[in-house]
């Protein structure tokens, strides 16, 4: 088989092998990036069960559409794009589903523990995940892609299927909404005093 020389084949090579019929190559690609992909799905949909569903939709779709990958972006970018879109799809479907009172359910959801690990070491991460939950999904997805994954605004626009200007404005509005949480996110007890002295509001 051509291209089997390296012990550590590139993502592109794995995807090529998968398209050529190698039945292990896609699994390998998935294992290589699974935590990152999981983080993207989890943070976009904010619910572990929905995130697993979204990620499964995405991986099956990527498995089947691998031949469409043209190599004009990194394989990870292509995967992130599929995962973000599957996640937003899930959220749209969930929004349509009748719930007793959707707003309350979501607010309540945000108050439930989402990490099976009770250790306080994960505090910052839990707090950030909780704070992200208050954002509308498009703003959340933009922040996940730009601030958390570190994509450029242009790449993020391609991943999110929108314009760079929209990405910028979604990120800006999302960050502004997260501002009241910044003192808490910092985990700094004295920080609250610094938050809004002029307006005299509660931080």
């Amino acid at each position: 088989m051509p291209g089997t020389d390296g012990e550590w084949p590139s993502d592109t090579e794995l995807l090529r092998r998968h398209v050529a019929g190698d039945s292990d190559a896609f699994g390998e690609l998935f294992r290589r990036h699974r935590d990152r992909l999981w983080a993207v799905a989890l943070r976009t949909v904010c619910d572990p069960e929905e995130a697993a569903d979204a990620l499964q939709d995405a991986m099956i779709s990527a498995f089947r559409r691998a031949a469409d990958f043209r190599g004009d972006s990194a394989v990870t970018t292509w995967l992130h794009r599929i995962v973000v879109n599957a996640s937003l799809d899930r959220l749209r479907r969930r929004a349509v589903r009748p719930v007793t009172s959707a707003g309350d359910e979501q607010a309540l959801e945000a108050l439930l523990a989402h990490d099976p690990d009770p250790a306080r070491a994960a505090d910052t991460r839990l707090d950030i995940d909780a704070a992200l939950r208050i954002l509308p999904p498009p703003q959340r997805a933009a922040l996940v892609v730009v601030d958390m994954l570190g994509y450029s605004v242009d790449d993020a626009a391609a991943i999110l299927d929108t314009s760079p200007g929209t990405v910028k404005s979604r990120c800006a509005r999302g960050r502004a909404r997260l501002l009241p949480y910044v003192a808490h996110l910092r985990g700094n007890r004295s920080a609250s005093e610094r938050v809004s002295p002029a307006q005299g509001g509660d931080a």
């Binding site: 935590d35 990152r36 983080a39 990490d115 910052t124 922040l143 601030d147 996110l185 910092r186």
Partner: peptide
């Protein structure tokens, strides 16, 4: 906020 989001560990 951007800096925090960038360094928060992936679950």
């Amino acid at each position: 906020i951007s800096a925090l989001l960038a360094v928060v560990p992936a679950p």
